[in-house]
């Protein structure tokens, strides 16, 4: 069993990444952020990563919103948030979700969730590139393990 010394702990501890189930919702944007998130999702699937996109909020730990939060979508977002089990987190991706982007002010949009709720992860860009989204997700996921997640 000598080869087990291969993993003898020397040097600093590396951050460990925990599994993360993400539920994505387009709340009324141009779907550009969604297109890039689809690329992220494909990359995660291909790499068998611990982060994945799921198809129901009942399974998710992170609600990821894109789009400028149309008035019609606001109650749907609320329902999805209420359906999430246990401690849950919110992420906003794209200018629209951060502050409404080009679509505000308007009678039909509330102007992004970023300005209305405390998001754990907020990534501007129109749209942010998949590499940026992926990096932000991983950096945030590995960095935030030390703090207890907000309820």
């Amino acid at each position: 069993m000598a080869y087990l010394h291969l993993f003898w702990p020397e040097g600093g501890a590396l951050p460990r990444m925990q599994a993360l189930d993400i539920f994505h919702m387009d709340t009324g944007g141009c779907t550009g952020c969604g297109l890039e998130l689809r690329a992220v999702s494909r990359a995660l699937d291909a790499g068998n990563a611990a982060i994945r996109f799921v198809s129901t909020p009942r399974q998710a730990g992170l609600l990821l919103l894109t789009g400028s939060l149309s008035v019609e979508m606001a109650p749907v977002v609320e329902l999805a948030w209420q359906a999430m089990p246990g401690s849950r987190l919110l992420a906003v991706v794209g200018d629209c979700a951060v502050d409404g982007g080009v679509f505000t002010p308007s009678y039909a949009v509330l102007g992004g969730v970023g300005g209305r709720a405390q998001a754990s992860l907020s990534l501007p860009g129109c749209p942010p590139a998949p590499a940026m989204i992926l990096e932000a997700l991983i950096r945030w996921r590995t960095g935030q393990d030390k703090q207890p997640p907000a309820a």
Binding site: M25, D26, T31, G34, F53, V54, S55, T56, V76
Partner: peptide, 10 residues
Amino acid sequence: GPAEGGFHAP
């Protein structure tokens, strides 16, 4: 819809 966890518009 409108929220299926997909990436298209609702």
